[in-house]
């Protein structure tokens, strides 16, 4: 499955550094995230974009990881030639990461819609 099935994500920027959160839909899936979404895998998945190191911070209480990617924004938001100089769309690239099937998952999406058609994470 893709990471997108079990987690959501938002990207922010500071200078030439990108900050990408990865948040489990169900906090009980934190261990699964922690095992498979490592700094090394994120660096490999975004190879060619990130030029510096990748640091991972863990927030088990809210079921989330926070990744800091140095040298990821083409010299910095303000001078980059890139179409998306803030790297805002990097969260979507990261959610395309493969997560091995076969392990128990608590919150997998998309869920069945509710009576009013909404799906509520």
């Amino acid at each position: 499955m893709k990471l997108r099935a079990i987690a959501h994500s938002r990207t922010g920027d500071k200078g030439n550094t990108s900050n990408i959160s990865v948040i489990a839909y169900d906090e009980r899936d934190f261990a699964l995230l922690a095992r498979h979404v490592t700094a090394e895998r994120v660096a490999a998945h975004l190879a060619g974009i990130v030029r510096g190191g990748v640091t991972r911070y863990e927030l088990p209480r809210i079921g989330a990881l926070n990744f800091v990617l140095r040298g990821a924004l083409g010299g910095g938001v303000t001078r980059s030639l890139a179409l998306d100089p803030h790297g805002k769309s990097l969260s979507s690239a990261l959610l395309d990461l493969d997560i091995p099937d076969g392990e128990p998952v608590f919150g997998r999406w998309p869920a069945e819609p509710e009576a009013d058609g909404r799906r509520t994470p």
Binding site: T55, Y57, I62, N66, V68
Partner: peptide
Amino acid sequence: KEQLLYEILDPA
């Protein structure tokens, strides 16, 4: 949660 972690770098 998405906003909590937005652009904070090291959460500690």
